[in-house]
Every structure is written in structure tokens, then in C-alpha cells.
């Protein structure tokens, strides 16, 4: 700055100042230092925020296929990635979804697909995602069968499976042999929601009972579990019919003791050659009644 210019300067030149500010050192008391520090912290924070946003944008650009999402050009779906914790097979799913060949991301309504899958009674929940550039990912969780249930709906015999939560569903891709081995539920008074029975209220009690039976290895021999007296307030009972035709009656208390007695009775009968057992009543407090159909008369 020339000398003449300085002589004609305005006070604002002192602020913008090449001149005066450099000539003198500014007084900086502690309050001013703190305030300046705070100002710099705020600037640093702002810089970090801008940096974070920029990184986020960069990350999204690199990983989320922004171009594909926003581009008008749609890629055809090359692969359907399917995951389930149950038995529904990809083949069945493909035939069920009936997605046209060469269908693109834009053609697929993932919300409609999700609703369609969740309308299946066997499917507990489903999620459908577009994985750019060319993959459709379907993840499902299914109800697990505990017992089967026969019902006549619209003059047609139907078979339903019941999950441990008490949900009834029509089996999809469930092995016929596996269904055959499941005990059937009898004696339950169920209401129907359309063609499917509503949730069974005492499923938790039944699950506990069947878990003991499974642990003792008895479940495979059972053909039917009758729960008509399970809701009885004075004496709740469970009645089981084995594949040999034996009826076993359980109370809903102290399953360990009852299964121990059952084991003893079955072992004793086998040793004595008494195979035609008609009825075993384990619900009695201090004893168990056993009725043989071929017991030799004295």
C-alpha cells in the first residue's frame, strides 16, 4: 500500500487491514482466549460435520449403486437370493411368485411380493430387498410344526399343522413322511378364521407336554393327542393314543413322575410278554392303572 493511500484511509481499512493490525499485537485477555477457543471448536465441529456428510455421500455412492437407483435404465433380475429357516424350497417359491422372465427391478413391487408371501399361513414373516445391480433377496421365517390337525372345510378333508405358538398353517413343501409321523391333535374346540383354524389357546401347555414325550422317546409312538379335557378346571387331563391302540391318560402335573411310571409299565409289560395294553391311566396320585386286553384270566 502506498504512503498516499494510507494517508487517505478509512477506518474500515484498519479492519481489513494490511497496515495497522500487523503493526501492533492484539491484547488477548483470558476471556478473549476462551472465546476464541470456543469459536475454533465450533468451526472444527462444523468442519467435522461437513466431512462426515461428504464421507457419507461418498460411501453411499460407492456402495449403494446410486447411479443404478436413480438411473432410468432398469437392469433385469438375474438372481433371486432366497433364505429361510424352514422347508419352503426355492423351486416352489419361484413357481409361486411367477415373476416373468426378464422382469426388471422397476417391474417388481417388493411390497406386493412381501404381502403375497406373508399371506401364506406357513410364513411367519418375509422381507424382500433389491440388491443392486441385479439380485432380489427374499428372507423368510416359517412356523415349525408340532402336531397335525384334520378338519373338514367346505366338504373337503384338510390337513393343518400347528406350531408351538398355536398357529395353524397349511403345509407347504413339508415332507409327507414327516407329517405322517406327527401326532394328530384331537378334541380341541377350534374356531375358524376363513378356512384356517384360529390360534389354539393352550398351545404352551401342549408344547411342554410334548417336549417331555420327545425327551423320553415316546413321541414317535404316539398317533393322537386328545386335548378335550386340557382346559378342565378341576382335573385337566391329556389323553394319548399310541400307534398300537393303547390309550394313555396324563394329568398336567409332574410329567417326570408320570413318564417314569410309563417307562416302568411298558418295560414290565414287555418283560412279561403282555403287549396288548388297552389303557394306562397315569393321572392318579399314588398309583397308575393299567388295563390289558389279553391279560390271562385266572
Amino acid at each position: 500500500m502506498s504512503k498516499k493511500k494510507l494517508q487517505n484511509s478509512d477506518w474500515r481499512d484498519l479492519i481489513r487491514g494490511a497496515g495497522a493490525l500487523k503493526q501492533r499485537s492484539a491484547p488477548v485477555p483470558w476471556r478473549a482466549r476462551l472465546r476464541k477457543l470456543w469459536l475454533w471448536i465450533r468451526r472444527l465441529f462444523l468442519l467435522c460435520a461437513i466431512g462426515g456428510l461428504a464421507f457419507g455421500a461418498w460411501y453411499a455412492y460407492r456402495n449403494l449403486y446410486i447411479e443404478e437407483i436413480f438411473s432410468s435404465e432398469a437392469h433385469p433380475i438375474k438372481k433371486i437370493e432366497f433364505k429361510t429357516d424352514g422347508v419352503i424350497s426355492p423351486k416352489w417359491l419361484t413357481s409361486y411368485l411367477k415373476l416373468p422372465k426378464k422382469s426388471t427391478f422397476n417391474d417388481v413391487n417388493i411390497f406386493a411380493l412381501k404381502n403375497s408371501l406373508e399371506s401364506l399361513t406357513q410364513v411367519k414373516s418375509a422381507s424382500v430387498e433389491r440388491i443392486y445391480p441385479d439380485t432380489l433377496r427374499i428372507v423368510m421365517t416359517e412356523h415349525k410344526p408340532m402336531v397335525k390337525f384334520f378338519a373338514k372345510v367346505d366338504y373337503t378333508d384338510r390337513i393343518y399343522l400347528m406350531s408351538p405358538e398355536g398357529i395353524f398353517f397349511e403345509p407347504i413343501c413339508v415332507n409327507a413322511g414327516f407329517v405322517e409321523k406327527l401326532p394328530s391333535l384331537a378334541g380341541a374346540s377350534l374356531k375358524f378364521d376363513g378356512s384356517v383354524p384360529q390360534k389354539y389357546e393352550h398351545a404352551a401347555a401342549l408344547e411342554e407336554f410334548l417336549a417331555y414325550a420327545q425327551a423320553k422317546g415316546e413321541l414317535a409312538n404316539w398317533k393322537e393327542v386328545n386335548v378335550s379335557s386340557l382346559a378342565n378346571l378341576t382335573m385337566p387331563l391329556l389323553s394319548v393314543k399310541t400307534r398300537n391302540g393303547t390309550q394313555i391318560i396324563f394329568s398336567t402335573k409332574d410329567y417326570i413322575k408320570q413318564f417314569d411310571r410309563l417307562e416302568y409299565i411298558l418295560r414290565y409289560s414287555k418283560e412279561k410278554g403282555l403287549n396288548a395294553i388297552e389303557r394306562i391311566d397315569l393321572s392318579l396320585k399314588g398309583r397308575a392303572d393299567v388295563k390289558y386286553s389279553d391279560y390271562p384270566k385266572k
Binding site: I15, A20, Q23, A26
Partner: peptide
């Protein structure tokens, strides 16, 4: 008009606190 050094002192007081002198 005023003395440049004295005006600078006044401005320094404000600027050293991180504030702008908008009007003098």
C-alpha cells in the same frame, strides 16, 4: 478523522474478542 494508532487500539479491543467492528 482520528489518530490511526488510537483507532487501531479501539478496533483491537473488539477484534481480539472475535467480534467484528461493523460501524465506528
Amino acid at each position: 478523522h482520528g489518530d490511526t494508532a488510537k483507532l487501531s487500539d479501539d478496533i483491537h479491543i473488539v477484534q481480539s474478542f472475535g467480534l467484528n467492528v461493523e460501524h465506528m
